[in-house]
């Protein structure tokens, strides 16, 4: 056995499941359902842990503490996630117990010693309009026309721009927002609006903002000329959104950035 123990679980958030019961049979049945939804798909551990694209879990002589640790914390450097951040404590305990049962543990402990696994802090409550704005911010159907093409927020998006520190008061202000940090770069026969990342002795790195998505370009220091300011306007890249949608996005930003 030379393959590393790569636990490759698939997770599913928000899937409906039966109410958790302390009764062992119900408990294990629930664990099996969580397992089938989350861990048993084609690239993962297979039904009943018989191995899929990830290793077999059944009959490996794992003890429950090892299973719990691995499921909870994941395996760094692999696709095996830290499921304590993903599953509810009930689902996590149930799936750990189910995998334990696959390893001959007839009466798995329903709850880890010391209480349930720690959970992620609850997401901040958003108003309905702000929640709508959250979805719009990273609406993948807008392709490169979505805000998250250039802004990372709450773990979603590409961090081209610096973190949003203040929120425009309204849509008009958003559209008219000044962007003095965008300069003009001349490079070869090209001239482009650019967001400079670094100017080193060996290379100059900047985002070319000519057209979304921004392109991170690296050039030799002597080959590019920089001028302050540009003709680039933030309003040119938010055209996929209607007025009411931008209003919702601003509501979302206020709710998040204010924290």
């Amino acid at each position: 056995m030379s393959r590393p123990f790569l636990l490759l679980f698939v997770f599913t958030l928000g899937c409906p499941g039966p109410a958790w019961s302390q009764d062992t049979q119900d408990f294990l049945k629930h664990g099996e359902q969580v397992f089938n939804r989350s861990c048993a798909t084609g690239y993962c551990h297979g039904a009943r842990g018989t191995a899929g694209g990830a290793p077999r879990l059944a009959a490996r002589e794992f003890d429950q503490a090892f299973i719990r640790d691995t499921v909870s914390r994941g395996v760094p450097g692999t696709a095996m996630a830290a499921f304590e951040k993903i599953l509810s404590p009930q689902d996590l305990a149930a799936v750990v117990a189910y995998v334990a049962s696959l390893n001959g543990i007839a009466h798995p402990e329903p709850v880890p010693p010391g209480g349930p696994a720690p959970t992620q802090s609850a997401s901040p409550a958003l108003s309905p309009e702000a929640a709508r704005g959250r979805g719009l911010f990273s609406d993948s159907q807008r392709g490169f026309g979505r805000c998250s093409t250039c802004h990372e927020l709450n773990g979603i998006g590409i961090s081209v721009a610096t973190p949003i520190a203040s929120v425009p008061t309204d849509v008009q202000a958003l559209r008219a927002m000044a962007t003095p940090e965008v300069s003009t770069v001349s490079f070869g026969h090209e001239t482009m609006p650019a967001l400079v990342v670094s100017k080193g002795n060996r290379s100059v790195i900047f985002f070319d903002l000519t057209i979304p998505p921004p392109v991170l370009r690296t050039v030799s220091p002597g080959k590019a000329e920089f001028a302050q300011g540009s003709g680039w306007k933030h309003s040119s890249v938010i055209g996929s959104y209607r007025e009411d949608e931008l209003t919702a996005i601003l509501d979302f930003l206020r709710a998040i950035v204010a924290r």
């Binding site: 599913t12 899937c15 089938n36 048993a40 690239y43 297979g46 899929g52 993948s140």
Partner: peptide
């Protein structure tokens, strides 16, 4: 049901 960005096989599979 599909959740954006998560595996959505819709089945448990045993080869």
């Amino acid at each position: 049901g599909p959740q954006e960005g998560a595996f959505a096989m819709g089945a448990a599979v045993e080869m």
